[in-house]
Write a protein that binds this DNA or RNA. Structure first.
Length: 500
RNA sequence: GCUCCCGUAGUCUAGCCCGGUCAAGGAUAGAGGCCUUUCGAGCCUCGGACGCGGGUUCGAAUCCCGCCGGGAGCACCA
């Protein structure tokens, strides 16, 4: 059969068992092709602003870009979008490395790294080309006046400037004759444009703040639209895949290219807004939370950074298939994180060995327990060949408080051990496996601390075998959930909870 | 308010461009069953959707119009 070519195999199979074919075709749907994309010639970019580490909400942007770069064997440029920013969103020097660390973990192939803050002279050069076209002007209106006039579709007196006058004022901006806020360079688009956001947008402004990489070398900084109009062209970007909150930036880039008569332009592709149920995402909140001590660090599970996902034992491919499953849809989506967990569960279930962890232990004493030696239990019920762990037995054992309270007085089975009537003094019933509620238990073992997604810590006792686990091991604490081992000594184990 | 975008089951998504093969596929969540010394995994079964109203057409989830609903943008942030 295998000697036949695939076509023949297929038609043979179709005749014998057509239902097998149908199943094969029901695989995951692929992302749509990129318009005008040629194998080997696609150049994409990632443009993070270094105000903090990447979090799960940023994942759509970098995973889509990476996925397409891989698919077309193209190049992906990491371009730190580190223009001066705003006072509300300062650049964090350590964020550069945190972002790279996150991308690295997520399996993003970065082919080149550039910094916007290194390219300011280029932007000046192109600004002057743009000024020479006569389609810009230096505006001295204070921000409130600028906005008010924009709302009323009215031009200010600066709009009448000739190119050489603009040029002189632009030099004055660069030379420090204007203070922060006193002058901006604006593009003359259409002061009555139906979209108020598009009326003579600002291209450059003055910021006297110090930049973490280039200090006070520059005082005139480009805004995102202008810097990208220049850099998308210069870097030879073929496709810009960005969120739909940035659509107006497309229009601005187009307008700048039009006036500059630039022909080589990328395609713009957008995706909808991604939100998570019951999860608040904000880089600045992460920063504030850490500063105020409410979060333990950038990998605090409440921060939802890539670092925090790593620490919990979320695997990068799970994140990828989860995020890519939303495709390129323009629809705004709000998804439960459970979908991510289910994706991760598929990946880790077969690897995660099983152990007992008893949170909030209650001690019970088994009355009438016959003599039994230590129990040998498989590390994984589906793979008996993988090995066994040894569970010491005693008359006094610990069980989870929650189960104790719920099942007190009832017949329960201490899993892999024996059946009792659950109470402080528990009556031994039998050894045989019966179909009654089963709970985990522990005679003695290391203290366990499991950091939960909400930031709290679940404390209890783990079985002895847990003390010989290694950092980064992902285990399933039976009936408790999957967790990643974070730190372990003979007497203590610290873990991070992944999900059930 | 203005500009743009979106509307398939609880949630996410395929299909929509090029109308019939869609009595709408998949995933996840849910219900039930089997298996299993976990409330995990696996296997099987079930319920569940084309926002509304018109129009075009032999035929519309797919095309057209209107309405309704949701979102984003309207920064000298990115």
């Amino acid at each position: 059969m295998n000697a036949l070519d695939p076509e023949t195999q297929r038609s043979e199979l179709e005749a014998i068992a057509p239902e097998l074919l149908e199943r094969k075709e029901a695989k995951v749907s692929e992302l749509p092709p990129l318009p005008g994309a040629e194998e080997g010639k696609v150049v994409l970019r990632l443009a993070p602003y270094p105000s903090g580490p990447l979090h799960i909400g940023n994942a759509r942007a970098f995973l889509l870009n990476d996925e397409y770069a891989k698919r077309y064997r193209g190049r992906l440029i990491l371009a730190f979008d580190d223009t001066i920013g705003s006072e509300a969103k300062p650049i964090l020097p350590e964020a550069y490395d945190q972002i790279r660390e996150g991308l690295d973990w997520a399996g993003i192939d970065v082919h080149d790294v550039v910094y916007k803050s290194d390219r300011i002279p280029l932007h000046y050069e192109w600004a002057e080309k743009l000024i020479a076209t006569g389609n810009t002007y230096v505006c001295e209106c204070p921000p409130e006046r600028l906005q008010a006039l924009r709302r009323e579709k009215k031009a200010c007196e600066h709009r009448l400037q000739e190119a050489d006058e603009s040029f002189a004022m632009w030099r004055a901006m660069l030379d420090g004759q204007y203070r922060e806020g006193d002058a901006v360079l604006r593009l003359r688009t259409d002061i009555a444009h139906p979209n108020p956001a598009f009326r003579d947008r600002v291209l450059f402004r003055i910021a006297e703040r110090e930049h973490p990489r280039v200090g006070t070398k520059y005082r005139v900084w480009p805004l995102l639209e202008f810097s990208w109009a220049v850099d998308d062209h210069l870097l030879g970007i073929t496709h810009v895949i960005r969120g739909k909150d940035l659509v107006i930036e497309d229009m601005m880039e187009e307008a700048i290219w039009d006036t500059l008569r630039i022909e080589r332009r990328p395609h713009f592709i957008h995706f909808g807004i991604l939100r998570f149920k019951d999860v608040d995402l904000s880089k600045s909140q992460i920063r504030v939370g850490i500063a105020e001590g409410r979060l333990t660090g950038i990998d605090d599970p409440r921060a939802w950074t890539l670092q925090s996902l790593r620490r919990r034992g979320i695997r990068p491919p799970a994140l990828r298939s989860f995020v890519l499953s939303f495709g390129l849809s323009l629809t705004d989506v709000e998804v439960p994180v459970e979908s991510l967990y289910s994706e991760n569960r598929k990946l880790i279930d077969k690897d995660a060995n099983r152990y007992f962890f008893v949170p909030e232990p209650v001690t019970i004493e088994i009355q009438g327990l016959p003599h039994v030696g230590p129990l040998r239990v498989p590390l994984h019920p589906d793979f008996p060949g993988r090995g066994e762990r040894i569970l010491p037995v005693a008359e006094k054992v610990h069980v989870p408080r929650e189960d104790y309270e719920k099942l007190r007085g009832k017949e329960v089975r201490l899993k892999d051990f024996c059946n009792v009537v659950l109470d402080r003094r528990a009556k031994f019933l039998s050894m045989e496996n019966r179909d009654i509620p089963k709970i985990q238990w522990v005679a003695h073992g290391p203290n366990g601390h499991v950091v939960m997604p909400g930031g709290s810590e679940s404390r209890g006792i783990a079985e002895p075998a847990v003390a010989s686990l290694k950092v980064d091991d992902i285990v399933q604490f039976e009936r408790f959930g999957f967790s990643r081992i974070d730190r372990v000594t003979k007497s203590e184990v610290h873990a991070y909870f992944a999900h059930r």
